[in-house]
Simulated scan of single mutants.
Amino acid sequence: MKKHLYYRSLLALGIAATISACHQHNDVNPDDDALEHKFIRVMVSDEKTTDLSYVNPRTGGVTFEKALFPKSALYTTASGRFGVLVHREDNYVQAFDSGFEQHSDHVDVKGTPKWAAIAGQGKLPTHFKSKGNEVIIFNDGDGTLDIAQESDFHSTDAKMKAINAGNVAHHGAMTKFDNGTYAITEKDGSVAGTLPERVKIVDASGKQIAASTVQTKGIHGNASDGKVALFGSASGVLVVEQTGTQRLIPHPAEFGAAWFGTILEGGNTFVGYTAAMGAYMIDVANNKITPIVVNKDIMQCKVDYAGNVLVVLLHSGEVQLYNIKTNQLIKSGTILPATDKAETQKPQIEATSKYLYVTQPKSGELVQIEVANFANSQKIKVSTTPYRLAIVGIESSEEH
């Protein structure tokens, strides 16, 4: 899980000019004001056009870039510097550079916002992960992985590198461990459809390091803290350690046929989500699953940008914020009109420590709502039919 640290500014201490040229020290802390952090941006893709809205939420300013294709899924690299556009149906992956790079206690600006040169052209690229300096894409069309290093994103004609793990095509997923190996799903054909049943561990060449030891009835959704990876499955939560050890954590008895199709991670805390039941904390060490919010009306369930808060948006328009470490409700309130469950394109939500951001597909707007005061909100005009959004940048206002 990416970590975006919230840096406090330092008081002026009369530091020599050679040092002060590299750091900004003010008596007023810019991170203490009510506005969004200076180095946060919001990217919004469009369902029907190639417009990519690049929003500065501190000023409300919007610039429009042109993606190669419409209806792209949006993600953020672990560093926060790049936004990644995954065009599944068009077999293409793009990256957009915010230019913001964390450097000690401040943020450096590396040029102007622009498209990176890197391109991914795997078959049906779908599942995204980012760890350290690396971006990883699972290609549903042939079961391969595509990887790339952020340091290569601006190299001329840069292409993502394929890793062939000997898989057949399936709707798969993967994680990367701290030791450099990958946990990757595989399909053995024991379950009908495109979902995989097993997970194996491979190295960067695709060579198997540890075989699957647990067969499930279908896998979807995963997360990792680098030491252990969790996969949602119809048989329970599949736990895969980087040593190759595997086991299942059983679902609560009241789940019946329900299971977690989404696994979220904040720090070393894991959250399982299923629309059929709600959101639950997964205690890997004690093989325990505990409810956070039991509700069948959840429209979106996300972890905020810093990985500290679980954001639950209901179809009713109510949002609930939970401390992901303590499983305690922080606050709740209605921020939107109700959304019909039958709507095919629903509002999408993301959050920083200061603000919630919600797309409005019918009005072409991005709603910005202050976490400290839900009544403080504004609408920012973006593209005509906003589809997905992602936050990029650093939660800081300290600059070079």
Rank of each mutant, 00 (worst) to 15 (best):
M1R: 07
I15F: 14
S20P: 01
D27H: 04
N29E: 14
I40M: 11
V42A: 04
M43C: 10
T49Q: 04
A67F: 05
R88C: 01
R88E: 13
D90G: 00
A95I: 13
A95R: 03
F96I: 11
G99Q: 08
E101R: 10
Q102T: 07
S104Y: 15
H106K: 14
H106V: 10
V107M: 04
G111K: 08
T112I: 05
P113A: 11
A116I: 09
K123I: 10
G132Q: 02
G132A: 05
V135D: 01
D140T: 14
G143S: 02
G143K: 02
T144Y: 06
I147M: 07
E150K: 01
E150Y: 02
S151Q: 08
H154Q: 13
S155A: 11
A158V: 13
K159S: 05
H170T: 06
Y182S: 07
K187V: 00
G189I: 12
S190K: 15
G193V: 10
E197I: 00
E197S: 12
Q208V: 15
Q208L: 09
S212A: 15
S212Q: 07
Q215S: 14
T216G: 12
A223C: 13
K227T: 12
S233R: 06
A234Q: 15
S235P: 06
S235I: 09
V237D: 03
V239N: 06
T243D: 10
Q246Y: 04
L248W: 08
I249K: 03
I249T: 02
G256D: 10
G261A: 08
N268D: 13
N268V: 09
N268A: 13
F270A: 01
G272Q: 02
Y273G: 03
M277G: 00
G278T: 06
G278Y: 09
A285C: 00
P291Y: 14
V293I: 12
K296P: 02
C301Y: 01
A306I: 11
V309I: 15
L310H: 04
S316P: 09
V319W: 11
Q320C: 01
N323C: 01
K325D: 14
N327T: 11
Q328R: 12
I330W: 05
I330E: 13
T344N: 12
Q348S: 14
Y355A: 05
Y355S: 11
T359V: 10
K362W: 10
Q368W: 07
T385P: 01
P386I: 08
A390Q: 04
G393N: 08
I394S: 03
I394C: 01
E399V: 09
